[in-house]
């Protein structure tokens, strides 16, 4: 059967029987074009968010000015959770479909997710100390936030520790999906049996006008951090693609240009 042989060698010489390489090759310049726009949007939105937080939000004499920390704390927390969902979706698709690009997207998201998880804990601690007098409590939200940071770090470490990229992809994907199950379980069990300091502390008695401004500022900051995440993850995705696909024809041609 000569025709069947030719097609199989043709697809094998491209390295993958489906669109994997073509997708990476297509996405590489697209990501490069999109990243600066996301970065610019992030700069504008974060500047606007900080302006709202530091100049439009009124003085808060009853609660204390540390309530302005919420403007970075909550958006950073939202982003760490959102990025984890995005990473889990990409890792799941990569694991089930044995799809390299999805796994690369997941690995590109992990460091930025870890950064936001760390920031959520750090800013939360700086908010918690003046608000409830302690840096840390083992309540449901803090415990699961710590677990979230640990999961991001473990994913990053798996990719740096394992030389075989495909093995690292699979290990990281399994870990990410286990974490996806573990996070709500830990949250629920600590919420049930542990201390619950977080909820009453967030019962801020702010005037409705202040709450509207605070919410607007947090949403603008959140949009800014989301744009930053897109810019950082797309830039990292390009680096990951170059590292992993350096032997493929199109990268070699790109280098030759």
């Amino acid at each position: 059967m000569p025709p069947a042989d030719t097609t199989s060698t043709a697809s094998e010489s491209r390295g993958m029987p489906w669109l994997g390489i073509a997708l990476e090759q297509k996405l590489y310049p697209l990501a490069g074009n999109a990243a600066p726009w996301f970065a610019a949007a992030a700069a504008v939105l974060c500047a606007l968010g900080l302006y709202i937080g530091f100049f439009l939000l009124p003085r808060e004499l009853a609660q204390g000015e540390h309530y302005r920390i919420l403007l970075i704390h909550l958006p950073a927390t939202w982003m760490s959770i959102l990025i984890y969902f995005a990473m889990a979706a990409a890792a799941g698709v990569g694991l089930v479909g044995n799809h390299r690009l999805s796994a690369m997207v997941a690995s590109a998201l992990a460091p930025t997710g870890g950064m936001f998880a760390f920031l959520a804990l750090w800013t939360g601690s700086l908010w918690g100390k003046p608000s409830w007098g302690v840096w840390w409590v083992w309540d449901a939200q803090l415990t699961s936030a710590l677990l979230l940071l640990g999961l991001f770090l473990a994913v990053v470490m798996l990719h740096t520790a394992l030389d075989d990229a495909r093995r690292a992809d699979r290990a990281a994907a399994v870990l990410t999906l286990v974490g996806l199950v573990a996070l709500p379980v830990v949250y629920a069990s600590v919420a049930r049996w542990g201390s619950a300091a977080h909820e009453n502390s967030l019962a801020l008695s702010l005037a409705p006008g202040i709450i509207d401004t605070l919410l607007t500022g947090m949403l603008v900051m959140g949009a800014g951090l989301a744009a930053y995440t897109a810019a950082a993850a797309l830039t990292r995705l390009r680096i990951v693609i170059l590292e992993r696909e350096r032997r493929s024809d199109w990268v070699v041609r790109l280098v030759g240009e």
């Binding site: 900080l50 003085r59 808060e60 004499l61 204390g64 000015e65 540390h66 302005r68 920390i69 970075i72 704390h73 950073a76 950064m115 760390f118 920031l119 750090w122 800013t123 700086l126 908010w127 100390k129 003046p130």
Partner: peptide, 18 residues
């Protein structure tokens, strides 16, 4: 920052640094 400068600026400074 109404006496909370250390907390507020530590939070934002580290965010910037990271």
């Amino acid at each position: 920052m109404g006496g909370y400068g250390l907390y507020v600026w530590a939070a934002y400074l580290l965010a910037l640094m990271v």
